[in-house]
Every structure is written in structure tokens, then in C-alpha cells.
Write a protein that binds this DNA or RNA. Structure first.
Lengths: 147, 147
DNA sequence: ATAGGTACTATGCAACACATAGTACTAAAG
DNA sequence: CTTTAGTACTATGTGTTGCATAGTACCTAT
């Protein structure tokens, strides 16, 4: 019911893909990554990004170096490793597959094989046999299944 | 590093959208939903689907009724409520936005405004000022930040 | 010295996909 | 009749990650 929660759930696993992709363009430090993603209307907060970068680094997908800044404290520039580059390709394939699957499920894009194979009746036309259980009442919020 | 785990994370929040969408086509019982999604290469397991259906029902997005089966035990047919239909529209918008955002981040689809606004240098060209900290060594797995 | 801005670290929580174990119902087989 | 197999659903615990929150550290300006 909470669309914001669902939005957060949908982002799980996706941010990793986005970060690796950004870094495939070249080194960056966290604030740049945040800005880059905000541009694409993917707002990431620090509590998410820093632990995520650390995890990716611990998995050898990223490396980093410290660099002095002329306008504040030093910055931690991250860079994609070769392992990270390879993993990014896998992520891309995984994401593309997911998008295709969701597209297929939600937009009925392939009515041919899908309709033919699915044992699916849009409306169960036959009423239940009279005199048998369960009693066919549509329970909206009624959890007492009469069975 | 584990692509299977990332795949599972990516699915979070998405399955809800798929299920509501399937039910927008008409009533269905769990096995039908599983089959429908398997057709789209979205393999969902019972331990995921049943609790999810229950959650959606508890949120008034679904209703259900029992129906006798001629080939086994009775089945629980789920149906989208009006609330569910409205929420499905929100989910669709949310998903589309996410896809668009990821597309933008990962494929650099908008080089104009994106490149102009992002304080992002692909390669920090200037070497760090000599004689200053931190010592600029690229730490691959070296966690001892000399700072 | 203090304040403000920037950058990073640490920690706990909620939610959900998944794995696993179990119960219940029906039809077929012995 | 009982047992077996297949189908359908329920219950519960775990691991992972986005998010919220609190805190530390560094640099510059006042």
C-alpha cells in the first residue's frame, strides 16, 4: 500500500548496477556518484551509498585512492577493477532480462505462446458445484475460509 | 559478487507489480500465477508467492474465494480489488520511472544536460599536489588509508 | 579559536525473496 | 478399506540491502 516502500524494494540490487556503470565511465568520488544518479532521478542517500561502495570494494569489484581536494576534505576516488567490469556485464544482462520479463508479464506482449500454454482462465466461468464446499463467497477481508 | 543474489535483490518489489498485473487480467489461483510468470522467465517459488499474496490481501489489494477443483484439492482464487487496481497504476508508473532512470544512468542516453551539469571528471587529470596527504597510491585491497 | 561546509564511517531496522518443513485435500492404486 | 501420489496451501526462519540516524574527520572562512 505504501508506494514509497515498494520503490525502495525495487531499487534493491539495482543501485549496484548503476554505480558500477557510472564508474565504467571513469573514476569518481561518492558525491559525484550521488549527483550523477540524482540527475537520473535516482536519489541515493549516504547511508546507502557508502556501505554499498565498501561492499563492492570488499568484493574486489572496486578499488580506490585518496585524493586531496582544493575545496574541502580529501576525497575517496573509486575505480572499477577488471573483476568489476566483468561483473558489470553480468549485471547488465541480468537487468535486461528482468526488464524483458516484467514487460512480458505486465503488458501481455506475446499473446501467442503465452495464451496457448498457460492453464489460465481469465474468469472461472463455471460456478462451483452446488452443495459442495467451500462455500463460494468472495471474501474481501474475511479471513475465515469456510473449508 | 554473487550474481544470483543480486538477481534476487533486483526482484524485490517487482514481483508485487507482476502479480497485480496478472490479476488485472482476471482471477487466478497461485499455481496459475506461478505458471504465468514462469512463462516470462520469472521463476517464483511458493515460499515467496504465498506470503506475498497474503500480504497483498491484508493490504486490501486482493480478495479471494475458495473454489472446488475437479482434479485435486480446492483452490484459492485471487482477484484484484479496486484499491489494488489503483495501486497497480502507481506501481506501473514507479517501475517505468525506475527503468528510465537506470537506462539513463547506465547507457548515458542524455549526454547533453547530464554532461553539462555533473561536476564529474572522467579521469582526475591533475596529479595531487606533491608533498601533501593523502599519499596517492591506488589501493586495490589495501585498506590502510594513509590519511 | 569557532563555525560552517564537505566527506566519510558506523550501526540498527524494516522488508522481502528464498529455503525449508509441514498440513490438507483429492484421486488413484493396492 | 488403506496407502500412495499429486496438488494446494500454511508457517517460519534466514540473509541481504536500502534507509534512517548518529557520529567523526578534514578543510576553509570568520
Amino acid at each position: 500500500m505504501n508506494i514509497e516502500n515498494t520503490k525502495a524494494q525495487m531499487r534493491k540490487g539495482v543501485l549496484e548496477f548503476c554505480i558500477l556503470s557510472i564508474l565504467s565511465d571513469g573514476d569518481a568520488y561518492p558525491t559525484e556518484i550521488i549527483e550523477r544518479m540524482k540527475m537520473a532521478r535516482l536519489v541515493v542517500v549516504e547511508g546507502t551509498l557508502y556501505p554499498l561502495l565498501t561492499r563492492l570494494k570488499n568484493m574486489d569489484l572496486l578499488s580506490y585512492r585518496w585524493e586531496e581536494s582544493t575545496s574541502g576534505p580529501p576525497r575517496k576516488y573509486y575505480r572499477l577493477t577488471e573483476t568489476g567490469t566483468a561483473f558489470l556485464r553480468e549485471l547488465e544482462a541480468t537487468w535486461d532480462q528482468l526488464v524483458a520479463s516484467v514487460e512480458q508479464v505486465t503488458h501481455k506482449s506475446h499473446p501467442t505462446a503465452l495464451d496457448a500454454a498457460v492453464p489460465f482462465n481469465p474468469q472461472p466461468a463455471p460456478a462451483p458445484e452446488p452443495g459442495q464446499q467451500p462455500n463460494n463467497h468472495t471474501s474481501t477481508n474475511d479471513n475465515t475460509e469456510t473449508l
